[in-house]
């Protein structure tokens, strides 16, 4: 990886951390959880940036892997700090939400509806579908990546806040 790319990666991870902490703060989480969410956000978005720019991966699988890594790490942190996992996951995933494709799709839809030139209109329509689908599938990939660790580790994630490490397991 070149120096320029490493620098860009650090930049990306830094701003992703701020974004994760900022959006996390709306839900009034414990401060430790907020700091953890910032780190998770940086890791998830940083990994996605690396996959997309250094390995030229498509944004959909890259988003999936980014979300998966953040959510899996969230699980580890949640075990360590005894937080329920959903406090950590969402702010970490948020910086990967496909805002630009969603916006472009909407803008192009308006342009398409107002357009009278047939050829131009087809171009707009194509942009609506391309961006709309891209937003939809990136979002689906994020959701899949985020939910997967929660489902796989379903039983333990419900006992995150238990102090006594009991193995009796009569119920959740």
């Amino acid at each position: 990886m070149s120096l320029g790319l490493s620098f860009a990666l650090l930049h990306d991870a830094f701003f992703a951390a701020i974004a994760a902490a900022g959006f996390g703060s709306i839900a009034n989480p414990p401060l430790k959880a907020l700091a953890a969410a910032a780190i998770l956000g940086a890791v998830g978005h940083g990994l996605r940036f690396y996959l997309m720019h250094a390995l030229a991966m498509h944004s959909i699988p890259a988003s999936f892997l980014g979300a998966l890594s953040a959510a899996s790490l969230a699980y580890a942190v949640a075990l360590k700090l005894r937080f329920p996992i959903e406090v950590l996951t969402f702010p970490a995933i948020l910086p990967m939400v496909p805002g630009i494709p969603a916006y472009t799709s909407m803008l192009m839809l308006i342009k398409f509806l107002r357009c009278t030139d047939e050829v131009q209109a087809q171009e707009y329509l194509l942009a609506v579908w391309r961006n709309g689908f891209s937003a939809l599938f990136i979002l689906s990939a994020l959701v899949a990546g985020m939910v997967m660790p929660m489902l796989l580790l379903h039983r333990t994630s419900q006992r995150m806040t238990r102090v006594r490490a009991s193995v009796s397991g009569e119920h959740d």
Binding site: H11, F15, A19, S25, G99
Partner: peptide, 21 residues
Amino acid sequence: INFMLVLCMVACANASFCFLF
């Protein structure tokens, strides 16, 4: 958490978003 602090953090977060995009 203090409202003005949350406001600042959310505003910083959204500005960071803008950078990421």
